[in-house]
């Protein structure tokens, strides 16, 4: 039983990432204001990025301290071969970093497109509250 509690506490990064993900999910579904939904979308995606970056940080997985940034000092021809480039130097896995770099840019582009749609909805209906938009659609029989 004790090892289970220890395992759960040692990986608290993942638990907090799930908490943040559900906060964003709640805002996307339950909030009425379109701007609030967008804020929820942002929080949701950052939580997923937090999960991936936690995967790349090997100090969570039991390597302990002494983990460094994935920057290789000097020119090492065998640097690309494995996790340990210099003797005794362990660094964070750079592959999730690169993937999440793309995800951040995609998030910014998605938010920009969504904001353009929100502005267009505001021009058409004069409101950004979801229920009022649906009500006006019913009135005009769209």
């Amino acid at each position: 039983m004790e090892w289970l509690v220890e395992e759960i506490l040692a990986k608290y990064n993942y638990w907090i990432s799930i908490v943040l993900m559900l906060i964003g999910f709640y805002a996307m579904i339950a909030k009425n204001n379109l701007m609030k939904k967008l804020i929820g979308l942002n929080i949701f995606q950052t939580a997923i990025i937090l999960f991936f970056i936690s995967l790349s940080d090997v100090s969570i997985g039991g390597w302990g301290g002494g983990v460094t940034e994935p920057i290789v000092k000097g020119t090492l021809p065998w640097a690309a071969a494995g996790h340990v480039a210099e003797e005794g130097v362990v660094y964070a896995n750079p592959l999730p970093h690169v993937l999440m770099l793309t995800a951040i840019v995609v998030l910014a582009a998605t938010t920009a497109v969504a904001l353009a749609l929100v502005i267009r909805i505001h021009e058409e209906y004069g409101t950004i509250e979801e229920d009022e938009v649906i009500e006006k659609e019913r009135e005009h029989g769209v």
Binding site: N42, L101, A108
Partner: peptide
């Protein structure tokens, strides 16, 4: 968490550009 590249991209794109877009909207 040793992800410096992700860190400065987030500070520039996430905190800078996205906030500017949202305030402009």
């Amino acid at each position: 968490m040793h992800a410096v590249d992700v860190g400065f991209t987030e500070a520039a794109v996430g905190a800078g550009a996205t906030t500017a877009f949202m305030i402009a909207a």
